[in-house]
Computed example of a mutant assay.
Amino acid sequence: MGFANNLVEGLDPRSKIISFLSIILCMVLTPITRLKDFGLYFLLILAIAFIAKITPRQILKRMFFLIPFILFVAIFIPFIKEGNVYWSIKIGYWQLRVTYEGVWTFLNVIIKSGLSIILLVIASSTTTFPDFLQGMEMLRMPRLLVILMSFMYRYIFVLFDEAKRLMRARALRYFGSRYSEQLWIIGYMIGVLFIRTFERARRIYSAMTIRGFTGEIRSIKRFQFSYIDFLFITGIIISLLFIVSGIVYKLEHMKINNAHLWQAL
Results as ranks from 00 to 15, higher is better:
3 F>M: 14
4 A>T: 15
6 N>Q: 13
9 E>T: 14
10 G>W: 04
13 P>T: 00
13 P>D: 08
14 R>S: 03
16 K>Q: 01
17 I>A: 01
17 I>M: 01
18 I>E: 02
21 L>A: 06
25 L>S: 11
25 L>C: 02
26 C>F: 10
27 M>F: 02
28 V>S: 09
32 I>P: 13
38 F>Y: 15
39 G>T: 06
39 G>I: 13
45 I>R: 13
45 I>M: 02
47 A>T: 08
53 K>Q: 14
53 K>I: 01
55 T>A: 07
55 T>M: 04
62 R>T: 05
62 R>Q: 11
62 R>S: 12
63 M>V: 07
65 F>Y: 07
69 F>E: 10
72 F>T: 14
73 V>G: 03
77 I>G: 03
79 F>N: 05
81 K>E: 12
84 N>T: 10
94 W>Q: 08
95 Q>L: 12
97 R>H: 10
103 V>I: 15
103 V>S: 03
104 W>A: 10
106 F>H: 01
106 F>T: 05
109 V>G: 01
110 I>V: 15
111 I>Y: 06
113 S>P: 02
116 S>A: 15
117 I>A: 08
123 A>L: 15
124 S>Q: 13
130 P>N: 08
132 F>V: 06
133 L>Q: 04
133 L>C: 10
139 L>H: 11
141 M>C: 09
142 P>N: 09
150 S>Q: 06
153 Y>T: 03
153 Y>L: 09
153 Y>F: 12
154 R>T: 05
155 Y>L: 00
159 L>I: 15
159 L>N: 04
162 E>P: 00
163 A>D: 00
166 L>T: 05
167 M>Q: 10
171 A>L: 10
171 A>T: 06
172 L>T: 11
173 R>T: 13
173 R>W: 07
175 F>Y: 11
178 R>D: 14
178 R>W: 06
179 Y>V: 12
180 S>M: 04
180 S>Q: 07
183 L>V: 06
183 L>W: 03
184 W>F: 05
186 I>N: 12
188 Y>S: 10
190 I>P: 04
191 G>Y: 07
195 I>T: 12
196 R>K: 07
197 T>P: 01
198 F>C: 03
201 A>Q: 06
205 Y>Q: 14
205 Y>M: 08
207 A>L: 11
213 F>Y: 15
213 F>E: 03
217 I>N: 02
224 Q>Y: 07
225 F>P: 02
228 I>R: 14
231 L>I: 03
231 L>A: 12
236 I>W: 05
237 I>F: 11
239 S>C: 04
243 I>R: 04
244 V>G: 04
246 G>C: 05
247 I>W: 01
249 Y>T: 09
251 L>I: 15
257 N>A: 02
259 A>P: 00
260 H>M: 09
260 H>V: 01
261 L>P: 03
263 Q>P: 03
